[in-house]
Amino acid sequence: MAGNSQAPFQILLVEDEPVIRELVRSMLSDGSVDVVCAANGLEGLKLARSGTFHLILMDVVLPQLDGISVCRILKSDPATADVPLYMLTAKAKRSDMESATLAGADGYIHKPFRGAELMALVERLRAGQTRPESA
Score class of each variant (00 low, 15 high):
residue 23 L to E: 12
residue 86 Y to W: 08
residue 26 S to E: 15
residue 100 A to P: 10
residue 133 E to R: 14
residue 107 G to I: 06
residue 92 A to D: 15
residue 130 T to P: 06
residue 61 V to L: 12
residue 133 E to L: 14
residue 71 C to Q: 13
residue 36 V to Y: 02
residue 107 G to W: 11
residue 86 Y to V: 07
residue 45 L to S: 02
residue 75 K to L: 03
residue 66 D to W: 00
residue 1 M to F: 14
residue 46 K to Q: 05
residue 14 V to D: 01
residue 59 D to A: 13
residue 32 S to I: 07
residue 57 L to A: 05
residue 97 M to S: 06
residue 1 M to S: 10
residue 115 G to P: 08
residue 66 D to C: 02
residue 112 P to Y: 08
residue 46 K to E: 01
residue 18 P to F: 06
residue 90 A to N: 05
residue 63 P to W: 10
residue 87 M to L: 11
residue 54 H to P: 01
residue 29 S to K: 01
residue 100 A to T: 06
residue 6 Q to S: 11
residue 84 P to T: 00
residue 114 R to Y: 14
residue 84 P to C: 00
residue 46 K to A: 09
residue 52 T to A: 08
residue 70 V to C: 02
residue 132 P to H: 05
residue 71 C to D: 13
residue 6 Q to I: 01
residue 93 K to S: 13
residue 2 A to K: 15
residue 27 M to C: 12
residue 1 M to C: 07
residue 22 E to C: 01
residue 98 E to H: 02
residue 74 L to Q: 04
residue 40 N to P: 02
residue 84 P to R: 00
residue 4 N to I: 00
residue 83 V to Y: 00
residue 118 L to Y: 09
residue 64 Q to P: 00
residue 120 A to E: 10
residue 10 Q to E: 13
residue 80 T to V: 11
residue 79 A to K: 01
residue 5 S to N: 10
residue 115 G to E: 12
residue 82 D to Y: 00
residue 79 A to E: 04
residue 55 L to N: 06
residue 65 L to D: 08
residue 27 M to A: 13
residue 75 K to W: 05
residue 96 D to G: 07
residue 115 G to K: 05
residue 56 I to F: 02
residue 89 T to G: 02
residue 96 D to Q: 10
residue 51 G to I: 01
residue 68 I to E: 00
residue 96 D to V: 13
residue 44 G to K: 08
residue 57 L to T: 07
residue 106 D to E: 07
residue 101 T to R: 11
residue 71 C to Y: 09
